[in-house]
C-alpha cells in the first residue's frame, strides 16, 4: 500500500457491493430489524437488510465474542479420564457497531485478557473484524452516551464509518481494516472537502450531545461512595421483577455459569458455560441455602456499583457505556438516567 492516508470514502451506492464482496470471504453480521422498533445483529449477505439508523440492538455484539451458551470442554467418563478443551471461532466481520458498543467490547477485552486469560473469548476476538458506525444524533432518550464518554469514536475498531450523506467517511485503524479497504477496490482517499464535512458533523454533535444527567462524570465515583444506604435502591428494588434482562442486554456484563451435560450414551458429555445474571435470585445462593444477596434491592444496587464504582478501582474505567439497553429492556420501567439523577440529587 503506497498511500499513508487513514481516511477513505465509500460511495453509498457501493455499500451493497462492499457487503456482497465481504460476505464471500467472511461471515458478515450487521444490525437488522426485528420489528416493533427492535434490532439485532444477524448474518447478512447484502446491504438490503442492514438498517443504518438503528437504536442499540436487543443484545450487544458481545454475543459474537462471548456467546450466550458455548461448549468449552468435551469429556468421557471412562478409565483414563479424557477431556478436551473446545475453542470454537469463526472468521466474522461485524458491520455497523456504534461507539457505545465499541466501548463495551473494549471493556470486555480488558476483563477477558486478565490472567487467567480467557482463550475462548480471545480466540474469537482474533477472528473478528469490527466496522464501526457513527451516530450523528441521539438514537433515543434512553441513551446516556455523552455522560459515559462513548458517543465519539475512541478506537476499538478496524474500520469506522461516518455517514456523510452520499458517501461514508471511513477511518482505517488497523492493518486488518486496511486489508478490507484494499481488497474491496471500492474505496477512494477522502478529499479535503469530505474531511471538512466530517469535522463539521463532529462539531454539530458536540453541540447536540450534552450530559444526560446533570453531573460531572468525574464526580460519579464519590457519589456512589455516599450512596450505599440510599433509599433509591429500596424504591427501585420494589419495582424490580428480577428477570435479568438488564444484565443480559448489557454490553459489559460478563458473569457466567458452568455446567456439565451428559450425552445420551451416558459415557461422554460436554461442559457448557452460559451467561449468568446477578439480578436473578439463585446467583448468590450457595450450598446450605445461604444467599449473599437475598433481596432484590441489594441485587439491583450491586449492578449499579459494578458499572459506576467497582470497575473504577479495578480497571480505571466506567463499565457503563450509556447505550441505554438496561432501560429499554426493563419491563418495570427502572430507568438508569432517573436512578443516577436521584443519586446525584441525594448526594449534593
Amino acid at each position: 500500500m503506497a498511500t499513508h492516508t487513514r481516511y477513505y470514502t465509500l460511495r453509498k451506492d457501493d455499500l451493497n457491493s462492499f457487503i456482497v464482496k465481504l460476505s464471500r470471504d467472511h461471515k458478515v453480521v450487521a444490525p437488522v430489524s426485528k420489528g416493533y422498533g427492535n434490532f439485532a445483529f444477524a448474518e447478512v449477505t447484502s446491504s438490503n437488510d442492514i438498517v443504518l439508523k438503528y437504536i442499540p440492538t436487543i443484545l450487544p455484539p458481545k454475543k459474537y465474542f462471548f456467546p450466550q451458551r458455548e461448549t468449552i470442554l468435551t469429556f468421557s467418563t471412562g478409565r483414563g479420564e479424557n477431556a478436551e478443551a473446545i475453542l470454537e471461532h469463526e472468521d466474522t466481520v461485524i458491520f455497523g457497531v456504534h461507539t457505545c458498543d465499541l466501548n463495551g467490547i473494549q471493556c470486555l477485552n480488558i476483563v477477558f485478557s486478565e490472567r487467567p486469560r480467557d482463550y475462548n473469548y480471545l480466540g474469537r476476538k482474533d477472528k473478528i473484524t469490527i466496522i464501526g458506525l457513527e451516530c450523528s444524533e441521539y438514537c433515543d432518550k434512553d441513551a446516556s452516551c455523552n455522560l459515559m464518554n462513548s458517543n465519539f469514536p475512541n478506537g476499538g475498531y478496524d474500520l469506522f464509518f461516518t455517514d456523510l450523506g452520499d458517501a461514508f467517511m471511513v477511518h482505517v485503524n488497523t492493518q486488518a481494516g486496511e486489508d478490507l479497504v484494499e481488497n474491496a477496490n471500492l474505496f477512494k482517499p477522502a478529499s479535503p472537502e469530505q474531511m471538512a464535512a466530517l469535522y463539521s458533523l463532529r462539531d454539530a454533535k458536540r453541540a447536540l450531545f450534552k450530559n444526560e444527567v446533570a453531573v460531572d462524570r468525574k464526580d460519579i465515583p464519590a457519589i456512589f461512595d455516599k450512596s450505599e444506604n440510599s433509599a433509591v435502591w429500596q424504591k427501585a428494588g420494589e419495582k424490580c421483577v428480577g428477570c435479568g434482562n438488564c444484565t443480559n442486554v448489557c454490553p459489559t456484563c460478563y458473569c457466567f455459569d458452568i455446567a456439565d451435560t451428559m450425552n445420551l450414551d451416558l459415557k461422554s458429555g460436554r461442559r457448557v458455560r452460559s451467561w449468568d445474571s446477578c439480578q436473578v435470585e439463585p446467583f448468590a445462593r450457595v450450598a446450605g441455602g445461604e444467599n449473599f444477596r437475598s433481596g432484590q434491592a441489594e441485587r439491583l444496587r450491586h449492578r449499579y456499583y459494578r458499572k459506576f464504582r467497582y470497575s473504577l478501582g479495578k480497571y480505571y474505567r466506567f463499565f457503563c457505556t450509556g447505550c441505554g439497553r438496561c432501560t429499554r429492556a426493563c419491563m418495570a420501567g427502572i430507568r438508569l438516567k432517573e436512578t443516577l439523577a436521584e443519586l446525584v440529587k441525594e448526594a449534593l
Binding site: 416493533y36 451458551r69 436473578v280
Partner: peptide
C-alpha cells in the same frame, strides 16, 4: 432452573412481549 423465562428469552433475542 430457578430463574425466569426472560433469561432464555433474551438469550434468543426475542422482542419482549411487553414491547408488543
Amino acid at each position: 432452573p430457578d430463574y425466569p423465562v426472560c433469561v432464555e428469552c433474551k438469550f434468543n433475542e426475542n422482542v419482549c412481549m411487553y414491547e408488543r
